[in-house]
Design a protein around this nucleic acid. Sequence first.
DNA 1: ATATCCAGCTAATCCGAATTAGCATACTAG
DNA 2: CTAGTATGCTAATTCGGATTAGCTGGATAT
Lengths: 320, 320
Amino acid sequence: MTVRMKDIARNLGLSQTTVSHVLRGREAEFRINASTAQRVRTAARRLGYQPSALARNLKHHRAYTLAIAVGDLSNPFWAGLAVAAQHEAERHGYMLVVNHTGESLENERQLLEMLRQRRVDGLILSAAHLKPADLARLRREKRPLVLVDRTIDGLDVPSVVTDSVAGIRLAVDHLVAKGHRLIGYLGGPNYIAPFRERLAGFRQAMAAQQLRPALRATAHDAPGPAAHAAARLFRDAPRPTAIIAANIWMTIGALRAAPDDVEIVGFDDIYLADLLRRPLTTIAHPVEELGRQAVKLLLAEIAHPGSSESVVLAPRLIVR
Amino acid sequence: MTVRMKDIARNLGLSQTTVSHVLRGREAEFRINASTAQRVRTAARRLGYQPSALARNLKHHRAYTLAIAVGDLSNPFWAGLAVAAQHEAERHGYMLVVNHTGESLENERQLLEMLRQRRVDGLILSAAHLKPADLARLRREKRPLVLVDRTIDGLDVPSVVTDSVAGIRLAVDHLVAKGHRLIGYLGGPNYIAPFRERLAGFRQAMAAQQLRPALRATAHDAPGPAAHAAARLFRDAPRPTAIIAANIWMTIGALRAAPDDVEIVGFDDIYLADLLRRPLTTIAHPVEELGRQAVKLLLAEIAHPGSSESVVLAPRLIVR
DNA sequence: ATATCCAGCTAATCCGAATTAGCATACTAG
DNA sequence: CTAGTATGCTAATTCGGATTAGCTGGATAT
């Protein structure tokens, strides 16, 4: 049915070894006669030979496949990051399995299982749900792993993240320049690293502007709770005239709950942001760069475990 | 480094064959003594044995991987479909590579190449860019292939699509029930199958309501051209009081160009549609079902080529 | 004439598991 | 006492290609 090297060899009265040498482009190294090499190539084309990735993978101990776990593929941040990562992976001859975990522990663990069974060679994680036992096992097994967007305490692997502190400062400075003094902050749970950093960034940036970071609310990482928390910020005086929302769900909460004259700046860019009921300024991640760097780090980890350094990338403010 | 069956066998003074029989759960069939089987299982656990998917794949001639080509992963329709497909694939022990083609011929061809090299066992396509030569080759090679959302003329493989005609009828009937008589239609290029069917559906549904489907515009499948075409519908009298947009880009075009009092119904659901400046009623695909059925058909094609029938699924109207 | 060298190729093994065919040993039946 | 049978396991091969080690036959050198 399918054509193997052996078939080409038999067809030409040569050995499989010779065919392999030629088709791997190592004819010079093994002193294959130029005319023989040509015959092999011609026969390969004529018979429609396609090398079996399956056989090569076994021999190389490589699946030539990476995986990235993203919490929510419908979120354009993750979709964009995944697409960029896929491009980069393919540039290096790897496939990328983009896995939507739906923020579920079960799915994150399933991906680790794929790594163990060598269905994938390495993993890009943005997990926040793994338990200490999972992390301990990861540390023990030392498989190629890179974290993106969210770091995990106590897991010493390379990571690629956006500079949260710098991002929040961009937002605060922008709002202050527009005359705002009462700036509110809508943050997420502190067990997620970026939320911790963004809150710290808010405090720092406000202090730098001689303002008090007093108007704050915190919500679980979902639109409903975020809207609820945002509403609280407007119940009592002093009310903020502007809100900084710590991620996409906080932003959506703020959009739902804040009065129309309140200005909103949200971390994470939003799909169709220019079609929203009100203008929304966003702190955008360097999405492509995050994806590309994550793959580069991961491939470096595969080639030379423990060799690579973490990367922090600068966000940019999209004023609308 | 990694533990193989051979290591377990040596450790217990058994043969690799016996270990294989036990770990594949075929001890009864090969009359392995219960205590021997138990020793094997214990040793496997103790040594941390993980079967090599690479070796199994070669032996089975299966990559246990499928791929789906989607034009735009940032589009929540495709993201949702891909996630559902991934779920279904994993239920059957397969990985799913979700490939964002960016509507590029180059990328679609690259996926076909993966199929040929057996890096993936089958392909779910929604391609519209392949050339006749590509299609001819696909027909000749007869590899497992399923089309989703977009069918391709002259390529006789199973497909899973949403019933476009029924969808447009839902929209027309909804608008008529709300009192609209001047209903406009914003469509896409006719070389894409769903656009053809939706236009036909519009004509049919309008005829059924005794209305003339005269107010129409056509644009290339992108937001800019769509907005431009939508604007044309409002230049001359009679102007439509409502617009049906044939897909997500047409909808965005209509949102940008139509006066605020014009009611819009769009084919394809939109992320955060409830946050838009104006209420948007949509004709939503049964996204999960599309993804699930596509994988089921594909696995059926892999198991029994030529065995499966195409599927047409019903859309539903989300009134906002 | 014999050793040396080189061009040009091949045999054999490996990767890790799945699978087919079959070999001892002990026991039962006639 | 011998044939037949069941039990419990193993040897050998296969999947398709990569790789290492080495073989052969003619030309050149001494």
